[in-house]
Computed example of a mutant assay.
Amino acid sequence: MQVKHLLLIAILSLTAACASQDALDENLSETQLYQQAQQDLSNGSYTSAITKLRTLESRYPFGRYAEQAQLELTYAYYRNAEPEAARAAADRFIRLHPQHPNVDYAYYLKGLASFDQDRGMLARFLPLDMSKRDPGAARDSFNEFAQLTARFPNSRYAPDAKSRMVYLRNLLAANEIHAAHYYLKRQAYVAAANRGRYVVENFQGTPSVADGLAVMTEAYQRLGLQEPAAASLATLELNYPQHASLSRGRFVPRESETDGRSWLARSTLGLIESDAPPPRASDANREVWRQYQQAQQELPEEIRSPSTPRRADEPAQGRSWRSRLTFGLFD
């Protein structure tokens, strides 16, 4: 989506938010409030829907639509890009109505809110590496989807939750590898080896296991521990002979033994790098991103976000340098 469109949406949203501050007609019945909220949800006016659903709940706490309004309030918060509010609303619904026939939907929305929490507006314009982001929201989402699949294995949302858990597990493993490479770069070889071993022991089946073995091999070699280094290398060669660290039967360390960075890079702790090659996306990170796109495409239609990334087989739109520089303002 182009920035000029985003600006227009922001202006319209602000106008709608200001308009929603006006007090609703006190003579509206419970049914009228609920119907108006449903119309707002259908039109994508989530801020207005949130106002009406909250008003409905406060005016008619024991009415016929009270429980449904609480559940739909969670959905409205999620679609309005308010993940914390969505999670809080889901927790409240689960706590108040643990036996509700649609309580599995509350668990599902709670997991989705955490799933999308780290992906803001910048992710639409910049090629962010999700394995380098704070994994807190990913862990929360994994645990929430795990609760859903454990409590409601036959839920209609369980298959999608399970596929997202696979992606999240791969993402968490890739995040550990990113931390391990950071330690290698800083010559903290014991910490790097521990991170690599943690991935190998706890994330079997993920694309990052090969990277974990490579990290262990490099770290053990730097430490002069020949026996564990040889064992890690043998496992890597046996199971992942095509790994990027193996070249013509030889192991190629990723980091040089001495810190060859410039004085500017060293003095700023790597915040400012000079003459450094661009970061190369690992196989694990590419797989994580592919799975995220697939998970977004498989989102149920009724809660699918308009910002869902395009499919891999859809052609990318060509953009000029001026368009990229101005985020599409002068297309």
Rank of each mutant, 00 (worst) to 15 (best):
L112T: 03
G328I: 11
G224S: 09
S274P: 01
D259R: 03
F125C: 08
A188R: 11
L299C: 07
H100F: 12
V252M: 15
V103P: 04
D134K: 06
Y75I: 06
L71S: 06
L8H: 10
S247Y: 10
N143G: 08
F93V: 14
Q296N: 06
R248Q: 15
L122Y: 04
N80I: 03
I9Y: 09
R222G: 07
A17S: 08
T47D: 13
F62C: 01
P98R: 08
Y105T: 12
D160V: 04
Y292L: 15
A174C: 08
R133D: 15
K185S: 00
R324W: 04
S45W: 07
L7E: 13
R310L: 11
A312H: 02
V199Y: 00
R59A: 06
S45A: 10
L24C: 09
K185I: 00
D283Q: 13
I177A: 04
L329H: 09
R286K: 09
E301C: 03
Y105W: 07
E257Y: 06
G196E: 05
Q99Y: 13
L28F: 11
S58Q: 15
K185D: 01
A90G: 05
L172H: 02
A210N: 08
A193I: 14
T308A: 04
A19V: 12
L96G: 00
T31M: 07
L223T: 12
A23F: 08
V288L: 02
F327E: 14
R261C: 03
H97W: 08
R169D: 00
V190W: 10
Y198V: 11
G212N: 04
V103W: 10
L246K: 07
V209P: 00
V200H: 03
A19E: 13
N194F: 02
G318H: 12
L109I: 15
L271R: 01
F203H: 10
L271W: 01
L73N: 10
A138E: 11
L325G: 00
R304D: 09
L329Q: 11
Q221L: 14
R286I: 07
L41C: 11
T55R: 03
Y220W: 11
R319H: 03
P207F: 09
R92T: 12
G120R: 13
T206M: 02
H178I: 05
R186D: 10
V200A: 08
R64Q: 15
Q117N: 05
P153F: 13
E57C: 06
A86E: 15
G328E: 13
Y107S: 02
A284V: 07
K110A: 09
N239F: 03
Y77K: 00
A89I: 14
A19M: 12
I303G: 08
Q317K: 14
A123H: 05
S20R: 01
G270D: 04
Y240H: 05
D140H: 10
S131W: 01
R195G: 14
A234P: 04
G44F: 02
